[in-house]
Design a protein around this nucleic acid. Structure first.
Lengths: 155, 155
DNA sequence: TATTGTTATACTCTATAACTATA
DNA sequence: TATAGTTATAGAGTATAACAATA
């Protein structure tokens, strides 16, 4: 077996091609860390038949009961036509209600159902627990530093 | 105008519904920061008719000339059938060549074309410049801290 | 006139299964 | 038997334009 064949073998086992300068890119590091979080959380999301995107919508409604669809769209950078399909799904899962808005008859006021509230409490707890266990080898000050640095990219 | 109408008005202007506990989630902060980076880089990617995903593939090939498709798939968590379409695009853009592998006739050895090498030099420079300008209000030590913390999520 | 939500549509991304040629 | 690459296909996500109801 030649040296180049050995390298290929080792690559295959480790799944580790070099990505050169990309490994020093913030965009790559963010994507890479997010991929890990996504993988860890996906089991919970699957169990409740939602996705990270739908989870964001549920959170927005949970903390802003009665908000309009467009408000959620703007906050989460979701297209208004995509929001229709997403809410249809969440309504079918009986997590969300669309009620007529008292202020503006064009708008729908969004609310979690009782079932939605209960499910969200469970999901939020599980997600938070998973994050904590992912951060066990980070000190308290490292965690706050990381969060504070990331917050500075908000907007 | 009532107080609730004022709140709605202010929400609309600021696009700022509260996301409650989600704002303390690492997963949310990562996604949020990544969205900003994605937005900033998208103009460059559009100009070269590529996407962040295709950029990752180009980088992998650039730093591992002659690598197989499956090696890139494994490194970047891309499905092998999706890789076919991605490489078809990159070949049509004349960024990439698929050559027969000398070691294993099942494999294709991937290489950047001359045009691909030139384009990648330009793109990598622009991307790095954009990141630098995004990080202007971070001190040198803040930047290294951020990157080192994020690296610890790598696998 | 402008905005909210909807539909229709199209395009991309992703994932699965079945196939081929090679090992 | 197993692997690399391909095709076909179906599902999800995303974006655009046109529309009805309402402001």
């Amino acid at each position: 077996m030649t040296q180049s064949e050995l390298n290929q073998e080792s690559d295959r086992e480790q799944n580790r091609l070099s990505l050169g300068s990309m490994e020093d890119l913030l965009a790559y590091r963010l994507r890479s860390a997010q991929y890990l979080l996504f993988t860890v959380h996906s089991e919970v999301f699957n169990r409740y038949k939602i996705t990270p995107g739908l989870y964001g919508i549920l959170i927005a409604i949970r903390y802003n009961p009665g908000c309009s669809q467009i408000a959620v769209c703007n906050r989460l950078h979701i297209d208004s036509s995509a929001m229709v399909a997403a809410l249809d799904k969440l309504q079918k899962l009986e997590f969300v209600e669309r009620r007529p808005s008292p202020n503006d008859r064009r708008q729908r006021a969004l609310y979690l159902t009782e079932h939605g509230v209960a499910a969200m409490q469970e999901i939020e707890t599980e997600v938070a627990t998973q994050e904590k266990s992912l951060l066990t080898n980070f000190s308290t000050s490292e965690r706050t530093t990381l969060m504070q640095l990331l917050e500075r990219f908000d907007r």
